[in-house]
């Protein structure tokens, strides 16, 4: 039986092949995992002037939040627009478009396989973090862990759809990834990667709530670090963003394919 063009066998073979492919790049992936230590740098900055206390975060809350932010980022990072752009420009997309499987599933599988490859490196980095900050060690309850995992998965889905929407511009423009860079700054500030959103003025918070960014890092990281968070509101917002983005991706993809010139192929 197929759901959205996928069968168990397609999922199995795509994931196992992409995992084998990602293992070929394990050193590169380890470096990527290491390059995601921005939350730890931010933790150092925030800890030095005890700024967390201004918005009600203890030192322990801060260190757990930033470690959680690091982990959420590791498992929600998306690069589909860059791969897609390269494939579209080099003509690699053409054979995928002629197969009875939506090409985006290939990119989904390579992201999931990459996350699996990142897992051991993320665990090692977390272990090193605890080694230097033993007081921050905590084990979330199974329930909270599962909710945080679900929120991270939804965060990945939002990011993936958002980038796929941008990637669809590749059908019109050769450099669609430039649009992605436009989103990077708001993502950096409003996702909670640089600071928990609680540290922002209420007016900025209000504005941020209308964007998908707070639900990408801040929301899952707060669940994982056992901080006070509006679970129902967060999950509903994540689902709403998916429901907004999914049809947009489908429509823009359909329109884009009509415009495709199969350049380089």
């Amino acid at each position: 039986m197929k759901v959205a063009g996928l069968s168990k066998r397609i999922i199995r073979s795509l994931l196992s092949t992409q995992y084998a492919n990602m293992l070929e790049y394990r050193v590169e992936i380890a470096l990527w995992a290491l390059s995601g230590v921005l939350p730890f740098i931010m933790l150092t900055l925030w800890s030095n002037n005890d700024a967390g206390s201004v918005f009600g975060f203890s030192q322990l809350d801060l260190s757990r939040y930033f470690l959680s932010a690091f982990l959420v980022r590791q498992f929600s990072v998306v690069w589909v627009v860059f791969s897609f752009e390269e494939d579209a420009l080099l003509g690699k997309l053409s054979p995928y478009l002629l197969q009875p499987l939506h090409p985006l599933w290939r990119y989904v599988s390579s992201h999931l396989a990459e996350q699996l490859t990142r897992l051991p490196f993320a665990v090692i980095i977390a272990a090193i973090f605890f080694l230097f900050n033993p007081e921050s060690f905590w084990i979330p309850s199974i329930g909270k862990f599962c909710l945080a995992w679900l929120a991270t998965l939804l965060s990945f889905s939002i990011s993936f759809l958002l980038q796929s929407l941008i990637a669809a511009f590749c059908f019109w423009s050769e450099k669609a990834s430039a649009f992605e860079r436009l989103l990077f700054v708001p993502y950096l500030f409003l996702s909670g990667l640089l600071a928990p959103l609680d540290s922002f003025p209420p007016s900025v918070l209000k504005l941020a709530a209308w964007t998908p960014f707070p639900y990408l890092i801040n929301f899952p990281a707060k669940i994982l670090s056992d901080l006070n968070v509006n679970l129902l509101g967060g999950f509903i917002s994540q689902i709403i963003w998916i429901l907004i983005l999914l049809p947009l991706v489908i429509i823009s993809w359909k329109a884009g394919v009509r415009h495709y010139t199969a350049m380089g192929a």
Binding site: R9, I10, S13, T17, E24, Y25, Q99
Partner: peptide, 15 residues
């Protein structure tokens, strides 16, 4: 980076 056999298995599953 993978042997053709891996791609062949993916294609067989897709089709």
């Amino acid at each position: 980076d993978l042997p053709p056999m891996d791609s062949l298995q993916v294609n067989a599953a897709i089709y």
